[in-house]
Write a protein that binds this DNA or RNA. Structure first.
Lengths: 225, 225
DNA sequence: ACCTGAACACCGTTCAAGT
DNA sequence: ACCTGAACACCGTTCAAGT
């Protein structure tokens, strides 16, 4: 029985947050409840409250963990010499951030729900503003730019509707039915589905669309610079 | 006592959804529970399930009501003659949609959470695609455009962090503390706060930023047309 | 200092029963 | 056809109590 009674690793804020990320990664964000989080750590739900004020703080912390992961990755990206190509560097940072988020698909939604200005996010933004300033942006334009990018700065863009899993191409029969009420939409989807039949992420490749939108904004900013 | 027993208006899917919008408008989306919804209608929570499958369907319906409101407003906007200025018309539609959403500030978050392709949204999109096609867009470019606009097509853009209420300008003392770790960010915020002290929606005017981002994208698309 | 059991005030939802 | 009471399986959280 003493073999069973091996001293458990004590809880800590850090362990709690890491376990929370693990649960969200493995079972989705809706599986992240205080009770399940405690279970994952071999403790009771009430024990968590000694290390964390409440669930909101868990969610804040979870976002902080993810953004820290992003900061580590983009920290390895070089800064261009002053005046050199800010756009390339910014693009690289943003696409790298996106790669991290693709490993935590539940994260964008949680990030958006936070109202606290987390240190890790501030740090991420600092680097982007520094890049733009180095590239000749006025403070005013850099400020506009951050708003124009919005969540794209962190590597994700809000689609109109959350797709619960990969989007499947519309069936010909569906397009036919659509054509009556929504001729332009049906025509567009038919053509796009046809032109791009085997793209990796479904009938419209999110990565391609993300980069299209990103470049549209970055190019526009470059013109205003 | 018979005066009390006046026959109540019977429940209906429509009444349920309208009541749901009312609650969200008046007390916020987190106040929208099945029990409170029933209370608002003078019924028991369980009665709702006769008219609506579950809460998800309530949320779908609520979004549908809001987008229908948008469709009514934008429906009064004229369509430019073929080949005429698509951009002006698109801008007007989107800014009108935004005005509706400003009356239902909880709506963007709920809209984004839906995974079902609601008829009202399809109809809204149809009109935008029609405008672009009329303006000389290929189907492919129109498709890219819809993705690039994302939620901006409906009149809202996801800020990095949800601001629970209006954002206040940072205090000079806060900026000072920030300057040590985040010099570019602090410098930017200091200058922007100074340049634009009295904007209506706080230290950075969301409407201005929304229009800036929107025009950046629309101008970019116009160039690719 | 760290953890827990019992309990509270909420959720959404089912189901058999009422009118 | 429409509505409801009682009940179930969950939530987050408090608080007094344990070690």
């Amino acid at each position: 029985v003493t073999a069973e009674a091996v001293p458990r690793v004590p809880l800590s804020r850090d362990r709690v947050l890491r376990a929370a990320v693990k649960i969200a990664d493995e079972r989705g964000i809706e599986a992240l409840t205080m009770r399940r989080l405690a279970e994952e750590l071999g403790a009771e739900a009430m024990s968590l409250y000694y290390h964390v004020a409440n669930k909101e703080e868990v969610l804040d912390g979870v976002v902080d963990v993810i953004i820290q992961e992003i900061n580590e990755v983009v920290g390895r990206i070089g800064t261009p010499a002053r005046g050199a190509d800010w756009k390339k560097a910014m693009r690289e940072r943003i696409l790298s951030a996106r790669e991290v988020l693709l490993r935590h698909p539940w994260a964008p939604r949680v990030i958006e729900s936070r109202t606290t200005a987390l240190p890790a996010v501030m740090q991420y933004h600092e680097a982007l503003v520094a890049l733009m300033r180095g590239g000749g942006f006025s403070n005013d334009l850099a400020h506009h730019a951050m708003h124009a990018l919005g969540s794209r700065a962190l590597g994700f863009s809000q689609e109109l509707f959350a797709t619960g899993g990969p989007v499947r191409a519309p069936e010909p029969a569906e397009l036919e039915a659509m054509a009556a009420h929504l001729p332009h939409l049906a025509g567009m989807l038919a053509e796009v589905a046809h032109d791009d039949p085997g793209s990796t992420l479904g009938w419209c490749d999110d990565q391609t669309e993300f980069e299209f939108g990103l470049d549209l904004i970055l190019d526009g900013l470059n013109r205003l610079r």
